[in-house]
Deep mutational scan, measured.
Amino acid sequence: ISTPTHWSKLDPKTMKVNDLRKELESRALSSKGLKSQLIARLTKQLKVEE
C-alpha cells in the first residue's frame, strides 16, 4: 500500500483511472466503479482532508 499523495497536489478530474485507483486504495477507499464515480469519491475525500 502506497502513501496517499497530499490533497493539494491532486486534481482528480485530470487524473488517469489507474492513478485514481491508486490514490483511493492508499486511502482505504473502494477503487471499483466508473471513472466518474472514482473522481467523485476521491474529490469528496480530498475535501475532508483539506
Rank of each mutant, 00 (worst) to 15 (best):
I1V: 09
I1F: 15
I1Y: 07
I1C: 04
I1G: 05
S2E: 10
S2H: 12
S2F: 15
S2L: 06
S2T: 15
S2D: 14
T3V: 12
T3K: 14
T3P: 08
T3F: 09
T3Q: 07
P4K: 15
P4Q: 09
P4Y: 13
P4M: 14
P4C: 15
T5I: 05
T5Q: 10
T5C: 04
T5G: 06
H6V: 13
H6Q: 11
H6W: 08
H6P: 14
H6A: 13
H6G: 09
H6R: 10
H6D: 13
H6C: 11
W7E: 08
W7V: 08
W7Y: 11
W7T: 10
W7L: 06
W7R: 07
W7F: 12
W7I: 06
W7A: 10
W7N: 05
W7S: 10
W7C: 09
S8L: 04
S8T: 09
S8V: 05
S8N: 10
S8Y: 07
S8M: 06
S8D: 09
K9M: 10
K9F: 05
K9H: 10
K9T: 09
K9N: 08
L10G: 03
L10I: 07
L10F: 03
D11M: 13
D11A: 14
D11L: 11
D11Q: 14
D11P: 02
P12V: 08
P12E: 02
P12G: 02
P12T: 07
K13Q: 09
K13N: 15
K13T: 09
K13E: 07
K13P: 07
K13F: 05
K13H: 08
T14E: 13
T14I: 13
T14N: 14
T14F: 07
M15A: 03
M15T: 02
M15V: 02
M15P: 01
K16T: 08
K16E: 11
K16D: 11
K16L: 11
K16G: 11
K16Q: 04
K16R: 07
K16A: 06
K16N: 14
K16Y: 08
V17Q: 10
V17L: 13
V17W: 10
V17R: 08
V17A: 10
V17S: 12
V17G: 08
N18S: 15
N18R: 15
N18A: 14
N18V: 14
D19Y: 12
D19S: 14
D19G: 07
D19A: 13
D19E: 05
D19F: 12
D19H: 14
D19N: 14
L20T: 02
L20Y: 02
L20V: 05
L20A: 03
L20G: 01
L20R: 00
L20P: 00
L20E: 01
L20H: 02
L20Q: 03
L20S: 01
R21M: 14
R21C: 12
R21S: 07
R21A: 07
R21D: 00
R21G: 03
K22M: 12
K22R: 12
K22H: 13
K22Y: 11
K22D: 06
K22V: 05
K22L: 09
E23Y: 01
E23I: 00
E23P: 01
L24N: 00
L24D: 01
L24R: 01
L24A: 01
L24C: 04
L24E: 02
L24I: 03
E25H: 02
E25T: 07
E25G: 08
E25Y: 01
E25R: 08
E25K: 13
E25D: 03
S26Y: 14
S26T: 15
S26W: 14
S26G: 15
S26F: 13
S26R: 15
S26A: 15
S26P: 03
S26M: 14
S26V: 15
R27S: 01
R27H: 02
R27A: 02
R27I: 00
R27Q: 01
R27N: 01
R27V: 02
R27T: 00
A28R: 15
A28N: 15
A28P: 01
L29I: 14
L29W: 02
L29A: 00
L29M: 12
L29E: 04
L29S: 04
L29C: 09
S30R: 13
S30N: 15
S30G: 12
S31R: 11
S31L: 10
S31C: 13
S31K: 09
S31A: 13
S31V: 12
S31W: 10
K32N: 08
K32T: 11
K32V: 06
K32F: 06
K32A: 08
G33K: 00
G33L: 00
G33M: 00
G33H: 00
G33Q: 01
G33C: 00
G33N: 00
G33F: 00
L34I: 11
L34Q: 13
L34V: 07
K35R: 06
K35A: 05
K35V: 05
K35Q: 05
K35P: 05
K35F: 04
K35G: 04
K35M: 06
S36T: 12
S36D: 10
S36Y: 09
S36G: 06
S36K: 09
S36N: 08
S36L: 08
Q37D: 10
Q37W: 04
Q37I: 03
Q37T: 10
Q37F: 06
Q37L: 07
Q37E: 14
Q37Y: 05
Q37R: 07
L38M: 11
L38W: 02
L38H: 03
L38S: 03
L38V: 04
I39M: 10
I39C: 11
I39L: 07
I39T: 11
I39Q: 10
I39R: 13
A40F: 14
A40P: 09
A40C: 11
A40S: 12
A40E: 15
R41P: 02
R41G: 03
R41M: 04
R41H: 04
R41D: 04
R41E: 06
R41T: 06
R41S: 05
L42H: 03
L42V: 02
L42I: 06
L42A: 02
L42R: 02
L42D: 03
T43R: 15
T43Q: 11
T43N: 12
K44C: 04
K44A: 08
K44L: 05
K44E: 08
K44R: 12
K44T: 09
K44V: 05
K44F: 04
K44W: 05
Q45N: 08
Q45E: 09
Q45L: 04
Q45H: 05
Q45M: 06
L46N: 02
L46I: 08
L46P: 01
L46Q: 05
L46C: 07
L46M: 12
K47C: 05
K47A: 08
K47F: 03
K47D: 07
K47Y: 05
K47P: 01
K47N: 09
K47M: 05
V48E: 12
V48A: 09
V48M: 10
V48P: 01
V48N: 14
V48H: 09
V48K: 13
V48G: 08
E49R: 00
E49P: 01
E49W: 00
E49L: 00
E50T: 03
E50K: 05
E50N: 05
E50L: 01
E50R: 05
E50Q: 11
E50W: 07
E50Y: 12
E50D: 03
